[in-house]
Amino acid sequence: MATGGRRGAAAAPLLVAVAALLLGAAGHLYPGEVCPGMDIRNNLTRLHELENCSVIEGHLQILLMFKTRPEDFRDLSFPKLIMITDYLLLFRVYGLESLKDLFPNLTVIRGSRLFFNYALVIFEMVHLKELGLYNLMNITRGSVRIEKNNELCYLATIDWSRILDSVEDNYIVLNKDDNEECGDICPGTAKGKTNCPATVINGQFVERCWTHSHCQKVCPTICKSHGCTAEGLCCHSECLGNCSQPDDPTKCVACRNFYLDGRCVETCPPPYYHFQDWRCVNFSFCQDLHHKCKNSRRQGCHQYVIHNNKCIPECPSGYTMNSSNLLCTPCLGPCPKVCHLLEGEKTIDSVTSAQELRGCTVINGSLIINIRGGNNLAAELEANLGLIEEISGYLKIRRSYALVSLSFFRKLRLIRGETLEIGNYSFYALDNQNLRQLWDWSKHNLTITQGKLFFHYNPKLCLSEIHKMEEVSGTKGRQERNDIALKTNGDQASCENELLKFSYIRTSFDKI
């Protein structure tokens, strides 16, 4: 039985969820670079991206490699990797027998973001014989899940209580170790020597080791999670996991709180800001991140802002960003909400898709409305799209047979046209069989910064309504002859009103 693990408890099935942008060198404390989270699957090609990484700022997932063999891993080693800020997950990587050479110096898994409450997941690794993470000293947050690894031993010899604050939620089941077939031998045991430290858990006094050649490092209890030197002297209180010299914040392997210019500090002093819960960055760093993602459509890219001495992905609820200094300031009234469309555009074809934009005031991208039916549609669209004030790209209304009016965009005031449909149009209306009105132009103002209007096959939309939009939106004169079809717009509506004058002759039985 794995020490510190839980057996036999019912657990939810383990679901495996399925960018080499360097964020800056980590400095003297770390020998390499800070790398983003990685999802490495199918083959070993991307694994080489770990070569210079000291910190993975995010998670590391290595999974679904069915053609790899043990010899493929023999020359692979990433000794610079010290810390993973989120979680480490391995799933069905064939041929991998140990992690001792792959990650010989991995010391800390912070667990800032977890995989279903777990910071370390080893699942269905069919050839893994031992973990071998002999320098792993601290899992700051989260638990361990090690399950269905039929060859995995050296679990009962690990004292997880020396690595985690609590072992109650560890789930370590259905491994070879369960069948008591392992016969784990710690260093020196074969020669009758006791080389590794022994600890007591559940009444068992057991030597602690990761492999037959690597003991588990056990520091004096007084050192807590700070770690200790090879001689057993406690590291500085700002260290986490390990250090090369005692009581020196510049000799830590990793930091308990924050890293700044080669030393570990309790908090980031001005003019620095907390970033990702582990390091200090200056304003320029946060500003660069903001600008890199301002026009990016890459998933996970955030326009970072500053709030409460932190550089964070977005302002919290009730705050909006001051564009001059990136500071989050309290909103006066309802907060603006910028919604970034991942692929640059979004099609609204149902109430469900409209709900995804609920509360958005600025759309960074283009909207395509293609709704053919739905219950209580006008009210639903207004509830979900009615706060949109600005669209950076274009607005396209296409084959939306259920629409009679666009009044559900009740606050839309600006279409920038930074991206144009077919390279020309910022407003595009095609084949809307029941569209009769755009907006009530006596109450609604709309500016279209650039781009043209396109109207074709809107049989109940009168040309007068379209011409009014040209005047109000500032697009009059931009359109070419064929942009607004004269014969297919309003051709099934009563669009022309003329005053009919009647004269009559009164007659009676005795007068003409």
Rank of each mutant, 00 (worst) to 15 (best):
L47S: 13
G333F: 08
G32R: 12
T229I: 07
I312P: 05
D184Q: 04
G183M: 10
M38A: 13
T250V: 07
N42H: 03
K251A: 01
H28T: 10
G37D: 14
F66N: 01
N149G: 08
Y94K: 13
G192R: 05
L128K: 00
P269S: 04
L50F: 09
P246C: 12
H48A: 06
V121Q: 01
P271Y: 12
T107I: 15
C239S: 00
R298G: 08
V265M: 10
C182W: 03
E71F: 05
N170C: 10
D169W: 11
R110A: 10
S166I: 12
N308M: 13
L96T: 11
G32I: 15
S225A: 08
E124V: 03
G232A: 11
E207K: 14
G192Q: 14
I158V: 07
L240A: 12
G333S: 15
E180Q: 13
Y259R: 08
P249R: 07
D184W: 06
N175W: 03
G188H: 04
T229P: 11
H302E: 09
F78M: 08
F205H: 06
L50C: 02
E207S: 09
I172F: 04
T107H: 12
R298N: 07
G32V: 13
P271Q: 07
L131K: 00
L327Y: 15
T250A: 10
N43P: 03
C255V: 00
C328R: 00
A190T: 10
P70E: 05
C293Y: 14
K310W: 14
L60M: 06
D247N: 05
D288G: 14
N138Y: 11
N309I: 06
P313S: 10
R113W: 12
C235Q: 00
Q287R: 08
H302N: 14
E130C: 06
M137K: 07
H214R: 08
L289Y: 14
R141F: 03
C335N: 03
F275C: 01
R279F: 01
A230S: 09
R279A: 10
G262V: 03
Q204W: 07
G300Q: 13
V265T: 12
G142M: 00
L128Q: 06
S166P: 08
I312F: 09
T329W: 08
S77V: 09
Y118A: 02
F258C: 10
F283R: 11
